[in-house]
């Protein structure tokens, strides 16, 4: 019974939330009934008055070119962030990490800034390289200690993240104003500026990497038990880990490129899914895709409608996620080993 309710939450919510988000926005609440009558008239070829035609064209424009791309972008970004969080938590055997804590986001921002300064094309490729370098350094620092302990991973992630932010600041400081503007635009990406362009840019890498993680979902259980537990049953964990870290990094850097750094979201969403469906990644990875997308959509819809002005989504996720992080620290009784 409990599991059924959980499944309804994970798989039943996306569609209604998508529709509701379509209807509400900063301009006004779209009268969906009025619009559907107009749409019906349009489709069935019934003549419309000029005012009706104008209002239909405007609303269509708002829905199709402003709200729909934003909603789709938010959904895939949310799905990517929570899947990457779930994958990284499993791989690092640490429920307190996500791509932000491991330094991937900062590494990506730095990689992108370098590419912009040297006027290189394919900025996203450099962002990806920055992200993968960051996560590898984090892993290397943490595993130079004999065992990967929860705290060492978080600390090394924080250090790596700090260093990359410092390097990013340095690059910003020495670059000329035009490039500086480009860098800031890249790193401060915001769902506010979502258009079909961003959707096109993000949809392919995110779909591929999310699909790949979906394929590996059951194997992630074994990887989450540790390297020795994998080798003991005749599985070499290294290739799986390389593939999954690559996927998680590519997911994250793509989201940073189109929506900026959204911190902590990948940390707490997998926990919510685990509370609903249990730890089995076989069930939780698909749920992370759907609930991850839906929940970010809810946050985004709130952030653009709750106040007179639009609150950057990162502010919301950081406040939510920060509180959740403290709760997890208490609950898991994290200590120095």
């Amino acid at each position: 019974m409990r599991i059924n309710i959980a499944k309804v939450i994970c798989y039943g919510l996306p569609l209604p939330v998508l529709l509701i988000s379509m209807c509400i926005g900063s301009s006004k609440i779209t009268d969906i009934f009025y619009y559907s009558t107009l749409l019906y008239k349009q489709l069935s070829g019934v003549a419309m008055s000029t005012s009706e035609a104008n209002s239909f064209a405007m609303t269509s424009n708002v829905l199709l070119n402003v709200r729909l791309p934003r909603i789709l972008l938010t959904f895939i970004v949310g799905a990517a962030l929570s899947v990457s969080g779930a994958v990284l938590q499993g791989l690092f055997r640490n429920p307190l990490v996500d791509s932000y804590i491991l330094g991937i986001s900062s590494g990506a921002a730095f990689g992108a800034s370098l590419a912009i300064v040297y006027s290189l094309s394919f900025i996203n490729v450099y962002a990806f390289l920055g992200g993968i370098v960051a996560v590898l350094i984090t892993y290397a620092i943490a595993s130079s200690n004999k065992q990967l302990s929860t705290i060492t991973i978080i600390l090394s992630g924080m250090i790596v993240s700090g260093i990359f932010i410092a390097l990013l600041t340095l690059v910003q400081y020495i670059s000329n104003p035009y490039k500086l503007q480009a860098i800031i635009q890249w790193t401060m990406g915001n769902l506010h500026s979502a258009s079909w362009n961003e959707v096109k840019q993000a949809i392919i890498p995110i779909t591929l990497t999310v699909l790949c993680s979906f394929v590996y979902r059951w194997r992630l259980n074994l990887l989450a038990l540790g390297d020795d537990a994998a080798r003991a049953v005749g599985i070499n964990p290294v290739p799986d880990k390389v593939i999954l870290v690559t996927c998680a990094t590519l997911m994250t850097t793509t989201t940073v490129a189109v929506a900026g750094i959204i911190s902590f979201y990948g940390l707490f969403l997998p926990h919510i899914v685990r509370m609903l469906l249990g730890a089995d990644n076989n069930k939780s990875i698909p749920a992370n895709i759907f609930l991850g997308g839906t929940f970010l959509l809810i946050i985004d819809t709130l952030s653009r409608t709750l106040f007179m002005f639009e609150v950057p989504i990162g502010v919301f996720t950081t406040i939510l996620g920060g509180g959740f992080f403290v709760f997890l620290l208490k609950k898991n009784k994290v200590n120095w080993n």
Partner: peptide, 15 residues
């Protein structure tokens, strides 16, 4: 680290 069920853990032996 994670709260896998006994069944989940047993199944990993088949990977």
């Amino acid at each position: 680290v994670f709260s896998f069920t006994v069944e989940d853990v047993l199944l990993t032996g088949r990977t």
